[in-house]
Design a protein around this nucleic acid. Structure first.
Lengths: 243, 243
DNA sequence: CGCAAAGCTTGATTTAAATCAACAAAAAAA
DNA sequence: TTTTTTTGTTGATTTAAATCAAGCTTTGCG
């Protein structure tokens, strides 16, 4: 029995086991038979989370971390005034909830956007297995470092942007780059969420977002039809992002 | 011989070995004599980096990660137009360059602001020792997760802020919280850098920063004398940050 | 199918921040 | 010390984004 089960879902792109970011965790465990039995114990089967279902919620006790296999997640925080703030997105090959290894509880809400599948890694069992398998731990260290790298890049794409245009340009570039990790195209992007959610995440109004999208299209920088975006002038978009 | 050497420096606050975030890495190694000899090999002595000296630079090959022992660092990126962008700060107890475990090269410039001291952890040796000591790896995993948690909080403090006021308020709260980890006060903060650097980091002009500082003082939210800041009305400041 | 609801776009006006500019205060140099 | 330079503050004007408002498009539903 393998840990990775392909699940048929409509309109979702998969990252299969061969391309999964969790492979370094799976791989050393696949070597021998005894090790496979250990694997079965801590790395559960692909777990389907349905449309808009929360994977976990703020302040919940953390017993597992997750790797996205297919689909998209939005991460949100609830402000003291009960307003939802979208603090980020996660795509196939990325981790969710990894900061809870340290905090022991989740620090935000993770909500599936459309159909998704995830690999669930139980923390207690991972801990126990890790002591027997240093290689597994080295790989987890590398994975966490990779996630740190992703977080820093995401951070850089939103920090110190003086205009809404440069912020949106940098956001699009960040999304496209992360999508390219598991999809064919380096220029095409399916926006996982509506304009309201993106505007919320970037901190401006839906009207402003709409206007800048229109402006970028008019300038020939990109084309957008509904949620399907394509970059037509990468150099031009970058120069706006870094302006 | 111990790995942690206290170094006298003027005007700097220390995190000593007992309070150091690297203790989980040091501690298991301090247990037995044979282990101490391993420790000496990979965890070098406290390394003093002088005023404004770069710890490492963008694109440099990464052979080590660092933990800040005393002082402050600013992290910067150079844009294609050669403009410096301040992407963050690091304080005692925090890691620097940890994302390079995965990328193998540094992704930003780390520059000491004033006098600082750091612990340098050689990656190759850490890797070799880790295989012999699973406990060490578990602790590094926890540290990386903690750093993830810090990065996410830093991210949350700057993302989706529609006004300069809420952005600055959130930034101050984030800085004060991180300072409280290694200093006595929960409300006082010594700004490690000048107005220009903070304005650069937050993405607005020094004049705007100055005006908001004045406004916050006028409202009785905080007091500032040169680089010494004190929060006078925590509740008020929070309500602006989350507005 | 037609209607309602939600999501997206565009226009007119108001408000917040950038810019331009002058000056004050502090730090560094002569 | 005085002078020069850097750093920080405040004012007037311009510009970019929020807000208010209307219309359009798509989606879902009885």
């Amino acid at each position: 029995m393998t840990t990775c089960i392909k699940v048929k879902q409509p309109n979702t792109k998969y990252i299969d086991c061969d391309n999964c970011s969790m492979q370094p965790i799976c791989l050393p465990l696949k070597a021998g038979k005894t090790e496979v039995s250990i694997m079965d114990s801590y790395l559960s089967k692909r777990n389907i989370v349905n449309i808009s279902a929360p994977l976990f919620q703020e302040n919940e006790n953390a017993d597992a971390i997750y790797a996205v296999c297919s689909g998209s997640f939005k991460l949100t925080e609830t402000s003291p005034e009960r307003r939802e703030k979208v603090i980020g997105f996660r795509f196939p090959g990325e981790l969710i909830g990894e900061d809870a290894i340290h905090t022991k509880h989740y620090n935000y809400n993770a909500v599936a956007v459309g159909n998704t599948s995830v690999c669930k890694i139980d923390l207690a069992e991972l801990n126990a297995c890790g002591k027997l398998m240093p290689e597994l731990q080295l790989n987890l260290i590398s994975l966490l470092s990779k996630q740190n790298s992703m977080l820093r890049e995401e951070f850089t794409s939103v920090v110190a942007k003086h205009t809404a245009e440069s912020l949106l340009a940098a956001f699009i570039l960040n999304m496209v780059k992360r999508n390219a990790q598991y999809q064919d195209s380096e220029t095409k992007l399916h926006l996982p969420v509506g304009r309201d959610v993106i505007a919320n995440h970037l901190g401006f109004r839906r009207e402003t977002l709409s206007r800048i999208f229109s402006k970028f299209q008019h300038k020939g920088l990109l084309s957008i039809h509904a949620k399907n975006l394509e970059i037509l002038d990468l150099v031009g978009l970058k120069s706006i992002a870094y302006s």
